[in-house]
Structures are given as structure tokens and as C-alpha cells.
Design a protein around this nucleic acid. Structure first.
Lengths: 216, 216
DNA sequence: CCACAACCTGACCAATCGGTCAACATAAAT
DNA sequence: ATTTATGTTGACCGATTGGTCAGGTTGTGG
């Protein structure tokens, strides 16, 4: 059940700002509601309440529930793609994969809702972002596999399967967002502290980098 | 959208068999529908159709949608707990964690729907299995952490953080079920073959066991 | 100041869904 | 054979939901 904390929403006078500000508030509320209730369980009324707008006003900015949902999914996808820059200009796996883990873990902490919406979307067969998987994500994946393979050829890491390394990285980093509730419960009901997050990041980096033979 | 392939359902004459067989067909259909549509998106009508029963008959065996859902979630949880036996009587991490990865990966292949339902349940804040997390799962987790710590103390693996190792194991193994659609898309739209599954299991075990210093 | 476009919203509607129920069918017990 | 408990089902209902719309308000360019 989504908490009923309302998303802050300013009321600027200028026309362009009104549109930008309302769309931002709606998207922020929608991300949270879709994450906590799923697409089918989410209601436009609840999103409207959390954004501090009447429901009819939502449909003025986003024609349908699907439109709104699609925007939320695209948002987290773009954030993840940006985080991939850490990968490119790195001299080796310690820097590249280490920075990628840092970036993905940071996103799991700052954007847990978006991560859950993405997970839910994929679990349901990616009905709205299938084309992204087949184009952008596939290209991105093949590019990183090539980079990892180069590091292997250069003897900077063991000859592991680059594809399954990527899956392990995605799975582990996103787990801290998608299964955050389970982790919190196993942490005595308390959210991970700054120190515990740092410990998590260090642990993941340590195990992964040793697992691929980049460190001993 | 769930595929409309109907669950096979026999029609035995004996009373006890009728109950058992119908409940089995309903649970099998429900697991698939809940996984593919989420709790909110699933409809009793669709589950009934897939089980080959009229909707009213569902409510004869399961009073409410929540009752049916709860049974599905408990089912996968028990399957996972059984898989943990691999952990206990192992002399060290190579055998124990290796066998655990094998078992969890096998479950991801044979019970992908159940895994997704569990993931969805946890992502939504575990509204129906919160008590399981706080009791059974917590006890189980603490028990395995103790086993791993013992292996560390005995010098059989590096002093990594046992809790985050468990999270990495859960995340990675379940990823092959929960994100199976994404993996399939990145595999040219084809489900992983037997050979590819074996490669996945070997890759995960290789990276993890080296990551914890159990192998070099 | 005026006119137009953008923005806002309460009331409403058709469709869908979880769940109920009364009537009926069948298998097992007596 | 008769009774009884269990299983089956179409029809139905109240509640909820996504989406619409007519009429109003507000900002902005001329």
C-alpha cells in the first residue's frame, strides 16, 4: 500500500513552468505508486492525490494510464544508460566495473521506485518497452561485452563469460532496490544506514572484482 | 498478457482426488497469471479460464483472491527453503555454495513464475508474507551466515561479508527467472538452451566461488 | 483592455471485477 | 434406495476504475 505522503508541488505563475512543474510532480508520484502497487494495482486517483491534483488534471497532461506508465519506465532506463559512461573510458576492469557498480548502487539507493517499475515491466513481458530491449539495450550490452572481452584479451582479468558478468552486475546492484524491503526487514526493520550502504558497495565490488580475477 | 494455454486438468471420480486435482490446476494457473499480470492485473476470470473451471468454482476452493495469492507465494518460499539443505551438510564453500547455486538456478528454470510472484510481493512491501520474512527467513539467514562465518574462520574462504554474499546469491540466481524475458530478448528472442543454462550455472559458480576466495 | 490559448475541475459514464447465491448434479454413506 | 455432504454453475450485484466532457479560470500576446 503506497504511503500517502504528498509530493511537494510548487505553483509557479509562468505558463511553461506550470507545465514542467505539474508533469514533474505527476511523474514523481506515478513512479512511487506504480512501484508500490504495480501497474494493475495503481490507480489514477491515488497518483492524483499524491501529486496534489484532481484526477481530471492528470488526464490533461497524460492522456492515458499507459502513457504515464511508459514515461516512468523510460525515465529509469535513461538514468541507467547514463550511468554506463563509467564503463567506457576506463583503462581496466578495476576502474570500469568498479565505477559501474558504484553508479548502479547509488541509483538503487536514490531511485528505488524506478528500479522496481522496470523490474515489474520486464517480469510482465516488457509489454511497453520491448522495442528498447531489442534495440538500445541490445546494442549497449554488445558494446560492453566487447569492452570486457578486450580486457580479458589484454590479460587484465580472467576469461569469464562477459554476458553472465553483466547479468550478475545488474542482478546484484538492482537487488538492493527491488528487494529493499526484504533487506530492510533482515536489518531489523531499519533502512540501511550510510555506513551499511558503503559496506554493501564495498562487499559487492570486492566479491565481483575478485571473482573476475581483477584483484586477488 | 498471459498466454491463454490452458492448464491440463484431469477429471477423476473420487472425491479426495477431485479436490486435490482442482486445487492443483487452480494453483498452477494462478501462479502463471499472478506472475505475468501482477496481483492487481490478475483476474479471477482469467485464472478460472486457464484452469478450465467456471469462476464461481474458484471461489468454492479459494474464498478470496488474496487467499489464492497467499498460497502461491507460500509455495515458492517452501521450495526455496528445501533447496537450502544443500547448504547445511557441506564440508566447505565449494560444495555448499556450489550446490546452493545449482539448486537455486534449477528452481529459476523450473519455477520462473513462482519466483516472479515472490519478487512482486516483496517489491510491493510484502503485504501478505511480512511475518515469514521476520521469522522463518530471518532465522534461516542467520543460520547460513553462521555457517559461512565458520568457513571463513576455518580459512576455507576469504573474510567477505556473509550477508552480502547471500544477497548476491539470491539476486543473481533469481535474476535468471525474474528477468528471464530480458535475457531471452538479449539471446535473440530464444529461450536459453540446455547448453546455455549449463554455461550460466558454470559462469555464476565460477565467478562467485573465486569472488569469495574458495577457488583461484 | 481584449481575445485567444492554455489550464483546471466536478460530475458523470461505461466497463470491469471480486464476490455471492440459489438451484442443481454427483458421489459416498446409511 | 434414500439421505447427505460435496462439488458445480449461470446469473447477478455493488463497488471501483479509466476515461470523458462541458464549462469555468487564468495567464499571455497583441
Amino acid at each position: 500500500m503506497p504511503s500517502d505522503a504528498q509530493i511537494s508541488r510548487l505553483k509557479p505563475g509562468r505558463r511553461t513552468d506550470i507545465r514542467r512543474e505539474n508533469e514533474r510532480a505527476i511523474l514523481e508520484a506515478a513512479e512511487k505508486v506504480f512501484a508500490e502497487a504495480g501497474f494493475g494495482g495503481a490507480t489514477m486517483q491515488l497518483i492524483a492525490d499524491m501529486a496534489g491534483l484532481p484526477k481530471a488534471n492528470l488526464h490533461y497532461y497524460f492522456a492515458t494510464k499507459e502513457d504515464l506508465y511508459r514515461r516512468v519506465v523510460q525515465q529509469i532506463f535513461e538514468i541507467w544508460l547514463d550511468a554506463a559512461s563509467s564503463f567506457d573510458d576506463a583503462p581496466g576492469p578495476i576502474e570500469g566495473i568498479g565505477a559501474y557498480i558504484d553508479a548502479k548502487m547509488d541509483i538503487s539507493r536514490t531511485h528505488p521506485h524506478g528500479s522496481k517499475v522496470w523490474a515489474s515491466e520486464v517480469m510482465h513481458g516488457a509489454p511497453v518497452i520491448q522495442d528498447y530491449l531489442e534495440t538500445t539495450l541490445r546494442d549497449w550490452t554488445n558494446g560492453r561485452i566487447a569492452v570486457i572481452q578486450r580486457w580479458i584479451d589484454e590479460g587484465k582479468m580472467k576469461p569469464i563469460n562477459p554476458r553472465h558478468l553483466l547479468y550478475l552486475l545488474w542482478a546484484t546492484t538492482q537487488h538492493y532496490a527491488d528487494f529493499g524491503h526484504q533487506i530492510q526487514t533482515l536489518n531489523g526493520g531499519k533502512a540501511l544506514s550510510d555506513r551499511q550502504w558503503a559496506e554493501a558497495k564495498a562487499s559487492v565490488k570486492d566479491m565481483v572484482l575478485r571473482g573476475i580475477g581483477a584483484i586477488s
